[in-house]
Measured scan of single mutants.
Amino acid sequence: TFTSIVTTNPDFGGFEFYVEAGQQFDDSAYEEAYGVSVPSAVVEEMNAKAAQLKDGEWLNVSHE
């Protein structure tokens, strides 16, 4: 299960995956970082959410 939350205070020191406002979700980078295949429906969902981000916001993507 993939989830996401919007934050204005990303923790770059941890093992977190963020999408910056104005960027798209990079499923290849996510797969490389976590060894998890990302279904195309999830990629579309995360890109739709990322498109709604305002300046200074980040989308924190995770999975269980």
Rank of each mutant, 00 (worst) to 15 (best):
T1P: 11
T1L: 10
T1Y: 15
T3M: 10
T3F: 10
S4F: 08
S4E: 07
S4Y: 09
S4A: 12
I5T: 15
I5C: 15
I5M: 13
I5H: 13
I5L: 12
V6Y: 00
V6H: 00
V6G: 03
V6N: 01
V6W: 00
T7C: 09
T7W: 00
T7G: 03
T7S: 06
T8R: 10
T8K: 10
T8L: 09
T8C: 09
N9F: 09
N9H: 11
N9P: 01
N9M: 12
N9R: 08
N9S: 13
N9Q: 12
P10W: 00
P10N: 03
P10D: 03
D11V: 13
D11Y: 09
D11P: 08
F12M: 09
F12E: 05
G13I: 07
G13T: 14
G13L: 11
G13W: 08
G13V: 07
G14P: 08
G14A: 11
G14I: 08
G14D: 08
G14F: 05
F15L: 14
F15G: 15
F15S: 14
F15V: 12
F15I: 11
F15Y: 12
F15H: 15
E16A: 10
E16T: 08
E16K: 12
E16Y: 14
F17W: 10
F17M: 03
F17Q: 03
Y18L: 07
Y18K: 01
Y18E: 02
V19F: 03
E20H: 08
E20T: 08
E20V: 06
E20R: 09
E20M: 10
A21V: 08
A21H: 11
A21S: 09
A21T: 05
G22L: 05
G22T: 03
G22A: 04
G22R: 05
Q23W: 07
Q23R: 09
Q23K: 13
Q23I: 04
Q24T: 13
Q24W: 12
Q24F: 14
F25L: 04
D26T: 05
D26A: 05
D26P: 04
D26G: 04
D26N: 12
D26W: 06
D27E: 15
D27F: 15
D27N: 14
D27T: 15
D27C: 14
D27R: 15
S28F: 11
S28E: 12
S28K: 15
S28A: 15
S28R: 15
S28Y: 12
S28V: 15
A29L: 11
A29N: 05
Y30H: 01
Y30M: 04
Y30I: 02
Y30K: 01
Y30E: 00
E31W: 11
E31V: 07
E31L: 13
E31T: 14
E32S: 13
E32W: 08
E32I: 12
E32C: 13
E32Y: 10
A33H: 12
A33T: 12
A33C: 14
A33I: 15
Y34I: 04
Y34G: 01
Y34P: 01
G35L: 05
G35D: 05
V36N: 03
V36L: 07
V36F: 06
V36R: 05
V36D: 04
S37E: 11
S37Q: 13
S37Y: 11
V38S: 02
P39W: 00
P39F: 00
P39V: 03
P39Q: 03
P39E: 04
P39T: 05
P39D: 04
S40I: 13
S40G: 10
S40K: 15
A41P: 09
A41F: 13
A41V: 11
A41Y: 14
V42R: 02
V42I: 12
V43A: 09
V43H: 04
V43Q: 05
V43S: 07
E44Y: 01
E44D: 13
E44A: 13
E45S: 09
E45F: 07
E45I: 11
E45A: 12
M46K: 01
M46S: 02
M46P: 02
M46E: 01
M46C: 05
M46T: 03
M46I: 15
M46R: 00
M46F: 10
N47F: 03
N47H: 05
N47M: 06
N47T: 09
K49D: 03
K49W: 00
K49Q: 10
K49G: 05
K49I: 14
K49S: 06
K49T: 06
A50S: 07
A50D: 01
A50T: 07
A50P: 00
A50H: 01
A51N: 07
A51W: 00
Q52N: 12
Q52V: 11
Q52T: 10
Q52K: 12
Q52A: 14
L53C: 03
L53W: 00
L53T: 03
L53R: 01
K54S: 10
K54R: 12
K54D: 05
K54E: 08
D55I: 11
D55K: 13
D55R: 08
D55M: 10
D55Q: 11
D55E: 14
G56Y: 05
G56K: 02
E57Q: 09
E57N: 03
E57A: 01
W58P: 01
W58G: 03
W58T: 02
L59E: 01
L59C: 02
L59D: 02
L59V: 02
L59F: 01
L59S: 00
N60S: 14
V61R: 00
V61L: 04
V61Y: 00
V61Q: 01
V61S: 00
S62Q: 10
S62L: 11
S62A: 08
H63Y: 13
E64W: 04
E64M: 11
